[in-house]
């Protein structure tokens, strides 16, 4: 068959080039198709519509007394809502920023006029355990905030990292006070 193929093949360069072009075009176009097919196959693993619809949570905070905290949920993650006492606020303010691994003032971590409300994710920034300290009687660590028992991270009263392996302060999610007693997280 080789002899025949050679005999029949157009000998001029132009013919060969035109032929190569059509194969190249077909294969490239098919390649685009394969790439486009991969999109839904990858995209499907992302958060689905029902998960995204949980993007905000309303919490009634009227029952939280100063010094107390509650655990609630936002996007299936624990959220700590703490009503700080004036002493705790004062303690947080007394710390010089230069002592902090992730320098942030308590004012940056609370809303103006509501600085007794400290709202953070209850997810340790080290490897994601839930720190202790939100419930009554739990170990609040060396700095009177939260303490993560997994690898020993200590957070202070403004939930800033002070000791242990965690790299950052507990995350403050986006939230807003819809009224004096209701806060919307997310």
């Amino acid at each position: 068959m080789d002899s025949q193929a050679i005999a029949a093949a157009p000998s001029d360069d132009e013919g060969v080039r035109r032929r190569d072009f059509i194969h190249l075009a077909a294969v490239s176009w098919a390649g685009v198709g394969v790439a486009a097919t991969v999109v839904p196959l990858v995209y499907q693993m992302g958060p689905s519509g029902d998960v995204l619809s949980l993007s905000s949570a309303e919490v009634d905070i009227s029952a939280i007394q100063p010094g107390q905290a509650i655990k609630t949920q936002w996007r299936k993650q624990p959220v700590f809502i703490r009503n700080l006492t004036p002493q705790e606020i004062a303690a947080a303010k007394a710390v010089p920023l230069s002592d902090l691994r992730d320098p942030q003032t308590i004012d940056e971590r609370t809303k103006p006029g509501k600085e007794n409300w400290l709202i953070t994710l209850g997810v340790c920034t080290h490897l994601g355990c839930v720190p202790l300290g939100a419930a009554e009687g739990e170990n609040r660590g060396d700095y009177g905030g939260y303490f993560c028992p997994c690898h020993g991270s200590h957070y202070d009263t403004a939930a800033r990292i002070r000791k242990g392996p965690a790299p950052r302060n507990l995350t403050v999610p986006e939230y807003a006070f819809t009224s004096d007693t209701v806060v919307t997280i997310g």
Partner: peptide, 21 residues
């Protein structure tokens, strides 16, 4: 639309492969 273009290209490519056969 995409597949229509692909079919045309694939057909031309097929014809050209078989041109000598």
């Amino acid at each position: 639309g995409f597949l229509f273009v692909l079919s045309v290209l694939a057909y031309l490519s097929y014809r050209s492969v078989w041109a000598d056969k």
